[in-house]
């Protein structure tokens, strides 16, 4: 009896060791890829020296930050990032919820499936490919739009040089690429709503419109809050591909198309401006974290079940 117990203990130890060896490679990768860079954000308070690396470079206090906010362009990048994000979150959610509800109203199961399959196709393509597609429409000499304008007697538009079109173009491309994906997330929730709730509403005399308003929409609250929390955490970040590829790096458009991430990319690869870009990177990380934790705490207070953690 005693011997057997000892055997179990040993085999449990082996089990524990085996499990720890399993996660070891993943843990090492996450330390290198995620945790060391987290500590590396202190670079924002240092004067980066290539010879010494992040952790041994000299401290400079907050001079990177004061330098950052002296440049007027930075405020433009921050404004662009925030405004585009707010528009994307609001329109994206409205569009996705509407599509999901309408999709649920389609009666033919076969048609539903075809629609689902087709609307996520743009989501599957890379931004580089999408930039070729957009170029097919907007190219000054050969683009679909200019050829149509010429055919109706108008004069061609230099799409890639006129700022005023770009907030609309970028918003359209973003919605076009992403609406299928988020519609299907919502659709899955719509399908999961208990049928008896609709029946009860119908008994109370609610038509399809009222059923949508009082049964479907409240049923989507959970999913909407989850998606909202996730996008709020990314409020200081942007879809780099969208803002970098679609305007084709046109410098004339920079003031309406460049976001913080585009600036950081250019700082690393072109201007080597580590000081300011690490300062804005620090702000992105910290604000992103505070937003998720803060909004989550707020949601937990209002409606415990919807909180993410």
């Amino acid at each position: 009896m005693k011997k057997k117990k000892g055997g179990i203990k040993i085999s449990q130890k082996i089990m524990a060791i085996e499990m720890l060896t399993m996660i070891a490679p993943g843990v090492i990768y996450l330390i290198i890829n995620n945790y060391i860079p987290m500590a590396g954000i202190i670079i924002a308070f240092k004067k980066y020296n290539y010879q010494l690396g992040i952790f041994r470079s000299e401290w400079t206090g907050i001079s990177n930050f004061t330098f950052l906010f002296k440049s007027s362009n930075m405020l433009t990048y921050i404004r662009n990032t925030l405004l585009y994000n707010i528009v994307f979150i609001v329109l994206g959610q409205v569009f996705a919820i509407t599509t999901a509800i309408l999709l649920n109203l389609v009666r033919s199961a076969g048609a539903k499936k075809v629609y689902q399959t087709l609307i996520i196709i743009p989501h599957l393509m890379s931004m580089v490919i999408v930039s070729y597609v957009v170029y097919g429409f907007l190219s000054v000499e050969n683009g679909v739009f200019n050829k149509m304008i010429e055919a109706t007697g108008g004069s061609p538009i230099m799409w890639y040089s006129v700022k005023k079109y770009w907030p609309f173009i970028l918003t359209f491309v973003h919605l076009w690429k992403g609406f299928g994906y988020s519609s299907i997330v919502y659709y899955a929730t719509v399908v999961g709503i208990d049928e008896s709730q609709y029946e009860a509403a119908a008994l109370d005399g609610a038509g399809p419109w009222k059923q949508t308003l009082y049964v479907t929409l409240p049923g989507l609250k959970h999913t909407a809050i989850t998606l909202f929390l996730m996008s709020v955490g990314g409020i200081m970040y942007s879809d780099f591909g969208l803002f970098y590829q679609i305007p084709m790096h046109s410098s004339i458009l920079a003031s309406v198309t460049d976001t913080i991430d585009v600036y950081v990319f250019k700082a690393i690869t072109q201007s080597n401006d580590i000081g300011r870009s690490s300062a804005i990177g620090f702000i992105q990380s910290v604000i992103g974290f505070l937003m998720v934790v803060g909004v989550n705490a707020l949601v937990r207070k209002l409606d415990k079940d919807s909180a993410l953690f």
Partner: peptide, 22 residues
Amino acid sequence: FVFFTMLFNGGIIPAYMMYANF
């Protein structure tokens, strides 16, 4: 340890420096 990487990230610059220079 896994979940926290979704909440907080150090951004591109420190990671880029480590992969490129170190």
